Simulated assay, not measured.
Amino acid sequence: MALDHGILLETGTNEFEIVEFIIKSDTKEHHFGINVAKVREVIRFPEIVKVPDAHPSVVGTANIRQKLIPIIDLAQWLELKYDEDYKEKKIIVTFFNHQYNGFVVDEVVRIHRITWADIKDYSSITDFSLVETVLGVVDIGGNLIQLLDFEKIVLELNPETGLKDIEVDYSKAPQREGKTVYLAEDSSVIRRFLHSHLEQSGYTTFSFENGKLLLNKMKEQLPDLVVTDLEMPVTDGAFVVKTIRSHPDTRDLPVLVFSSLASEENERKVMSVGANRFIGKPDTDILVNEVDKYLI
Rank of each mutant, 00 (worst) to 15 (best):
A2P: 14
L3K: 04
I7V: 12
L8A: 03
E10P: 15
T11L: 07
E17F: 03
S25T: 00
H30N: 14
G33K: 15
A37D: 13
A37M: 13
V39F: 04
R40Q: 03
V42C: 06
I43C: 03
E47P: 08
I48L: 01
V49C: 10
V49R: 13
P52K: 00
D53Q: 12
A54T: 02
A54S: 05
A62Y: 14
A62S: 15
K67T: 12
I71E: 13
I72C: 02
L78V: 02
L78P: 03
E79P: 08
L80C: 02
K81H: 06
K81T: 04
E84D: 11
I91Q: 01
I92L: 04
N97D: 10
N101K: 11
F103R: 08
V104M: 04
E107L: 07
I111K: 09
T115M: 05
A117R: 14
K120R: 15
Y122L: 15
I125F: 12
T126S: 13
T126P: 05
S129A: 06
L130S: 09
E132W: 09
E132F: 10
T133K: 13
G136P: 08
G142V: 04
L144W: 12
I145W: 12
I145E: 05
I145M: 14
L147V: 12
E156V: 02
E156N: 07
L157H: 13
E160F: 13
T161D: 10
L163Y: 07
K164P: 11
I166K: 00
V168K: 05
D169H: 10
Y170H: 08
Y170V: 08
S171F: 12
K172H: 01
A173T: 09
A173K: 06
Q175H: 11
R176D: 01
Y182V: 09
E185K: 03
S187P: 00
S188E: 02
R191D: 08
R191S: 10
R192Q: 10
R192C: 07
F193V: 05
L194D: 01
L194N: 03
H195L: 06
S196F: 11
G202R: 03
Y203T: 09
F206W: 15
S207H: 04
E209P: 12
E209Q: 10
N210K: 05
G211F: 03
G211Q: 07
G211W: 05
K219C: 03
Q221E: 14
L222Q: 06
L222T: 11
V226A: 05
V227Q: 06
L230A: 05
E231L: 13
I244S: 03
P248V: 15
D249V: 14
T250R: 03
R251I: 11
R251S: 08
V255E: 00
L256W: 01
S259E: 00
S260M: 12
L261P: 04
L261K: 08
A262L: 06
S263F: 00
N266V: 09
V270P: 03
S272Y: 04
V273G: 06
G274K: 05
A275E: 00
R277W: 04
R277K: 11
F278P: 02
F278C: 07
G280I: 07
T284W: 00
E290N: 05
K293M: 11
K293F: 11
L295V: 14
